[in-house]
Computed example of a mutant assay.
Amino acid sequence: MIYFDNSATTQIDPTVLESYQIVSQKIWGNPSSLHKLGETAFNLLEQARQQIADLMKVNSDEIYFTSGGTEGDNWAVKGTAIEKQNYGKHIISTEIEHPAVLNSLKQLEKMGYEVTYLPVNEAGFVQVADVEKALRPDTILVSVMAVNNEIGSIQPIREIGDILQAYPKVHFHVDAVQAIGKGLAAVLQHERIDILTFSGHKFHAPRGSGFIYLKKGRKLAPLLSGGGQEKNYRSGTEHVAADVSLAKALRIILDQEQSKVEQQQVIKEKIYQHLKNKSKVTIFSDITSNYASHILCFAIQGVRGETIVHAFENHDIYISTTSACSSKKNIAAGTLKAMGVPEAIATSAVRVSLDEHNTLQEAEVFIDVFDELYEQFKKINS
């Protein structure tokens, strides 16, 4: 089996799974309980929080555990809107955000908030000048993803952050779900970023785990009310085993990060160079440094994306139709639509997404299978 769908989800690391099992079996006290079982669980939870903070080079009281990227994005967007509604109701985002952000914004619009959705150019990048132009006295939030999950375009987060230095009251949220472990620490550590969203299952941690970074001094209204866990910000009994495993997975993914990124770039370039000369192939992800090393999006003219996915599946190779969250809806990729790609081509788009376990040998097998399928598709569409 060749698994090229790592942007959808990753396989849990065996050592991470082992940690999850050990904690689940042996540390089962409630962290809020006063007895020693609860205290043991609480201490382990705080150790995991400190480990994540150290890896992210932030303070431990700036890390909050969540259930993943969707909750994190919802909390960042809606939490800001509720917390800052007396200061304004204008939000700036882009047309290519993850549905967790876009659908949160749609909900807020129904509640009287105004959202400016910035366009992207034909290569999939938001323009910094558009962000600056959209800022208003009543703007309370700017939300821009770090790495687009469909084509891998790396958005100008640092440049946007530089602009927002002059607007200290505006929250700056960055969806970093596709950015962790991809050599983008300099981007994610920009001092002007207020909120970062992460999802564990994107870097070999258990599904249902995640965390956000919330800069000290910034406030979010809680979305979950209850027992006051996570300093009253995120109520609900903590999933200690998942959070401990999350910390371990983060340490592993960041270990020798640059060499892992370089390996993925080599694999991506090998596939890219083979596809670029095919007359019926359109590639949406470049191999320049402006694009993430692990995502390659392309289309085969006249063949729907789901057909391509299943054709590769028949050869035990697993890819996806751009965003996994909307792949079963048989609609054109939102990012490609925003880029002005014709629907007939956009609905043919598929995504190869890599991780540090993929190899050049797998890329060679993929290329051989691609050539076989390409000839079959040409006969069908001739």
Score class of each variant (00 low, 15 high):
Gln189Arg: 10
Ile82Gln: 04
His35Thr: 04
Lys268Ile: 02
Pro342Ala: 14
Asn59Trp: 04
Tyr374Ala: 00
Ala332Ser: 12
Pro222His: 03
Lys78Pro: 07
Phe203Cys: 06
Gln264Leu: 13
Glu364Lys: 12
Glu343Ser: 13
Ser289Leu: 12
Ala346Ile: 05
Leu354Met: 15
Ile287Arg: 10
Ala344Pro: 01
Leu275Asp: 01
Gln273Cys: 08
Gly72Gln: 03
Gly200Asn: 07
Ala76Leu: 00
Leu44Thr: 03
Ser32Tyr: 07
Gln85Tyr: 04
Gly124His: 06
Leu373Asn: 04
Gly79Lys: 01
Ala48Cys: 04
Phe284Lys: 00
Gly228Ile: 02
Asp138Phe: 08
Pro156Asp: 14
Gly161Trp: 06
Ile92Ser: 10
Glu39Leu: 14
Val240Tyr: 10
Ile154Phe: 01
Ala185Asn: 07
Gly217Lys: 08
Ser7Pro: 05
Gly227Gln: 08
Ser225Val: 13
Ile212Ala: 08
Trp75Ala: 00
Ala241Glu: 05
Ile287Thr: 15
Tyr167Gly: 02
Lys169Gly: 11
Lys169Trp: 13
Val341Leu: 09
Tyr272Thr: 02
Gly29Ile: 13
Lys260His: 07
Gly112Ala: 06
Thr40Trp: 10
Ser326Gln: 05
Thr282Gln: 12
Ala48Phe: 01
Lys84Gly: 06
Tyr291Ser: 03
Leu184Phe: 09
Ser327Ile: 06
Ala332Asn: 05
Glu375Lys: 15
Leu105Phe: 09
Val177Gln: 03
Leu354Tyr: 11
Glu159Leu: 06
Val115Ser: 01
Ile22Gly: 02
Asn148Thr: 10
Lys270His: 02
Ser143Tyr: 03
Glu97Leu: 12
Asn121Pro: 03
Glu362Ser: 11
Val101His: 00
Gly112Trp: 09
Lys89Leu: 11
Ala344Cys: 10
Gln25Asn: 05
Leu105Arg: 03
Glu375Gln: 14
Phe42Trp: 05
Thr197Asp: 05
Asn358Arg: 03
Arg304Leu: 15
Lys329Asp: 11
Gly88Ser: 09
His239Met: 10
Asp286Ile: 06
Val309His: 13
Ile367Ser: 03
Asn358Gly: 04
Leu214Arg: 04
Glu132Gln: 12
Leu373Ser: 09
Tyr64Phe: 15
Ile180Asn: 00
Thr359Asp: 12
Ile295Asn: 04
Tyr64Ala: 01
Val147Asn: 08
Pro168Met: 07
Ser289Ala: 11
Glu114Asn: 07
Asn149Pro: 00
Met56Ala: 01
Ser353Met: 04
His274Ala: 13
Lys26Glu: 14
Gln361Phe: 09
His171Thr: 15
Val58Ile: 15
Gly183Thr: 03
Val266Ile: 15
His239Trp: 06
Ile151Asp: 00
Leu336Ser: 01
Arg207Thr: 04
Thr322Ser: 08
Gln47Thr: 05
Ala205Tyr: 06
Ala166Val: 11
Arg234Thr: 00
Lys57Met: 09
Ser285Pro: 06
Glu95Thr: 13
Lys57Asp: 10
Phe312Arg: 00
Gln256Cys: 07
Lys57Asn: 12
Asn74Arg: 14
Asp130Trp: 02
Val58Arg: 02
Thr70His: 10
Arg49Lys: 02
Lys106Cys: 09
His98Pro: 01
